[in-house]
């Protein structure tokens, strides 16, 4: 086992705060309530902080480092197809795509939710249905994300969910690290 410290404390706090924020806002509060709106602002602030962290933060959090090009995505898919055990120290290409998807859809949920509180869009039906559709989309994406994390952990032998808690990836000896 080799130990690599990957995720900085802010990133981990952000991740689990976003989990808590999304679950509480989407599932546990009444959509018309004051609490739902306040939690929505908290989630929006979290996303804004993550975007800033993606520009000014450490290497593993930077968009310029982890946003994959097409070749990287193909390489990751080929690894899966050929059962090659190669592990990524930071975000994997497919994982990075999911991160971008979740950041974008949750940001749009917050934006459309905010628009519903403004007088200009208060009665607009399309804003409301956009808000609800995006919540369904994000919930489905989260399910796929959790499934993919479990599956990649089993495939590569790296416990990815523990790494998001401790910040350390434990990489087995027989796995190669992608440069």
């Amino acid at each position: 086992m080799r130990h690599h410290r990957i995720w900085d404390p802010f990133l981990r706090v952000f991740h689990w705060a976003l989990v808590a924020g999304f679950v509480c806002t989407a599932l546990l509060t009444a959509p018309e309530g004051r609490l739902h709106q306040d939690l929505g602002y908290v989630v929006a602030a979290l996303i804004a902080l993550r975007l800033a962290w993606g520009v000014f933060g450490p290497r593993s959090a930077k968009f310029s480092v982890f946003v994959p090009d097409f070749a990287a995505v193909m390489a990751h898919l080929s690894d899966i197809a050929t059962r090659r055990k190669r592990v990524y120290l930071g975000h994997s290409p497919l994982g990075a795509l999911m991160i971008l998807n979740l950041l974008a859809s949750i940001a749009l949920i917050a934006l459309s939710g905010f628009l519903m509180t403004t007088s200009a869009y208060a009665g607009a039906k399309w804003v409301e249905s956009l808000h609800e559709t995006l919540v369904v989309w994000a919930t489905g994406s989260i399910a796929v994300h959790v499934g993919a994390v479990l599956w990649e952990s089993l495939r590569t032998g790296v416990n990815l969910s523990r790494a998001m808690i401790t910040g350390v990836k434990d990489i087995p000896r027989d796995a190669n690290i992608v440069p």
Binding site: M74, L77, I80, A81
Partner: peptide, 10 residues
């Protein structure tokens, strides 16, 4: 099919 294709390519 995609997985097959990627395997063959590799």
């Amino acid at each position: 099919f995609l997985m097959d294709l990627l395997r063959r390519k590799a």
